[in-house]
Design a protein around this nucleic acid. Sequence first.
DNA 1: CGGAATCCTATGGGATACTG
DNA 2: CAGTATCCCATAGGATTCCG
Lengths: 115, 115
Amino acid sequence: MDCPSRELLDLIGGKWAILILCCLQQGPVRSGELKRSVGGISQKMLTQTLRELERNGLVHRVSHPEVPPRVEYSLTTLGKSLSGVARELEKWLVEHYNAILDHREKHAGSIEDYS
Amino acid sequence: MDCPSRELLDLIGGKWAILILCCLQQGPVRSGELKRSVGGISQKMLTQTLRELERNGLVHRVSHPEVPPRVEYSLTTLGKSLSGVARELEKWLVEHYNAILDHREKHAGSIEDYS
DNA sequence: CGGAATCCTATGGGATACTG
DNA sequence: CAGTATCCCATAGGATTCCG
């Protein structure tokens, strides 16, 4: 079974990629601010995830040769189009999240209770 | 930063969930056949993922009281609607996958090469 | 045949300290 | 300030075996 969706999930399925993409939707953001606005992300994962996004052409990195250093990240065209997809995901979830929660509750404990 | 997309990824971000949902799109499939048609999945992950999908109301499980046992899985209404979202993901990916691959190649080795 | 129960490893990800 | 380098752990997931 080959299902391209899987590939996409490899791109954005990590714990932080989507959050970062969301944070970049408003325009260029510099590293430190990005870290704060994502919230809870470690320095390591911030860099690592950004490198990955960069490698896939979703995020653009600009390093200003100043001191102290200043680095800004922004979405590429490709990244913007992907964040559009992310909004589709959001949309689906907010529409159906209650249904999921409801089902979980009904299912809590019982095994014989199908819907 | 809260981004509902993340929640959805928790639902289907695993290694197998999407594949299973795809395999169920054609209609009810029994366990063994599902395992074969997914390909490469272990017994453990098959059951585990199905239980999770079931728990979230995406998949429906019917056990026929026969011997040898026969169990069939199918998509619920919710599951079907989700697999629709999956197709959106697919669509995006097939449209942009080459762009991603191209970018990766250009990026291979160079760090200073932005797009 | 469908699945539960173990055991085990690979790795995603966190905390921390150090550099330019 | 931005990033790298370690160290460490929790857990996702694979292989295998046993049960109705």
